[in-house]
Design a protein around this nucleic acid. Structure first.
Lengths: 236, 236
DNA sequence: CGGGATCCCAAGCGATACTG
DNA sequence: CAGTATCGCTTGGGATCCCG
């Protein structure tokens, strides 16, 4: 029969439709990077070092066809999310949270980009906790990535401040008091401990050191229920 | 160098790690079905008609290795989620919501299973709205799927009541008043309209018909911001 | 008969080279 | 810089076959 479409799931339902559109390899990583703002072809390729260029090209075409991204007319090779694509933010944040809860270490050679760190912070951000604090800026260095996270009034704005950061077009939140600034550094391997609530691996570089506790309560992942010390695991 | 693992993303971060573990084709559909409860190999295959049996077998092994699922020792061919796997519920629900917001129609031959309908209802469920209503049971028929959704005190419990439904082991929420029961039917093609807030395609079969409004406010997807009539779309 | 394992072929993916 | 073209390898799809 010719009626059977190839590579469909033969399923009706939201998950099946979503996975058909953004479930291909690399697609959600591209969306993740674009959630931080418009990017050019070379930016995406630099942030995804192991993606073959033809695959990046294919994915960009597919995501355009699915209405998830569009080209930026004024920038050569520029891409940005559509409203539909921005609607994937809850999906990406949920994946980010689960990914930190899942066991696993970094393979050597893995890169840690500013866009990845930005999504991590947004996934760990607790708006309700942050709203009780005065405006604060955190300058965070982890691996190769350096970002500025400005927290004000329960809102969060993360910006790449690394050596080859793009100029940010949109206005940023402003820090009320310039004294509430904390600059620190953390090893990538310690990030999961830090986001689990343990601020000890954090090395303060500058700023008022009391703010480390504020950071720890503003950015934190909850452990998954039932994932205590009595680890459940079936033997292989 | 032999240190580079094949098929890794070369990325450190939550999204990359999550996609490495549950991003393979079919994996999240399997997780979706297991979110409704333990299933046997043949149940999964029946709910995923187009999955090749070797792929189902591969995915089950991979998901076991990733700590997402485990075998049920007492049931031949039985599988269930681990605590880590249950942690994927927010991911699956976010995908379900986005999938309904994304354009697309059912291909003919697509099946609509009770597990898919169950996730749809859980994704559309508004606990805060439901808490204000007295306990209610909705008997919903959509396509081949028939489920009973019991709503009580802001909690939701969905159960397959179709012809070949599995016996449910765990206790269910009980409906306070047996009068608050509504049985109805909806065409699969009308489901997106129904979950968008339009209860008109709903055909009441039995029960107090005032409850249709209650259903409509208890189960609803919000439209994506910026997805109004002025559709943004780039030409191909 | 349910629960898989084994084939073969097609499609997708990855690395490199090349072009506008 | 922003892709396209090509090639070999890996994975998925479909049918069949095996095992308890």
């Amino acid at each position: 029969m010719a009626t059977r479409s190839p590579r469909g799931f033969g399923q009706y339902g939201g998950v099946a439709r979503a996975v058909e559109r953004v479930g291909e390899r690399w697609a959600l990583l591209i969306v993740r990077d674009l959630l931080a703002g418009a990017r050019r072809y070379s930016d995406l390729k630099a942030g995804l070092p192991r993606i073959p260029t033809n695959i990046l090209s294919d994915r960009l075409k597919e995501l355009q066809l699915a209405g998830v991204i569009r080209r930026v007319p004024t920038v050569r090779g520029g891409y940005e999310l559509t409203a539909l694509g921005r609607g994937l933010e809850p999906v990406v944040l949920a994946l980010e949270r689960w990914g930190w809860a899942a066991p696993g270490d970094a393979a050597d050679g893995d890169v840690f980009t500013a866009d990845a760190l930005g999504i991590t912070l947004r996934a760990a951000f607790r708006s309700d906790v942050a709203a009780a604090f005065p405006p604060t800026e955190y300058l965070l260095h982890a691996g190769e990535a350096s970002v500025s996270a400005v927290v004000a009034g329960g809102a969060l704005d993360v910006m790449d401040v690394g050596p080859d950061a793009l100029p940010q077009p949109q206005g940023r939140l402003s820090v009320g008091s310039t004294e509430d600034v904390l600059e620190f550094q953390v090893a990538v391997a310690d990030l999961d401990r830090l986001l689990g609530g343990d601020v000890s691996p954090l090395e303060v570089l500058a700023g008022r050191s009391e703010l480390v506790e504020r950071f720890g309560s503003t950015f934190r992942f909850d452990p998954l229920p039932g994932m205590g010390v009595d680890a459940e695991r079936s033997a292989a």
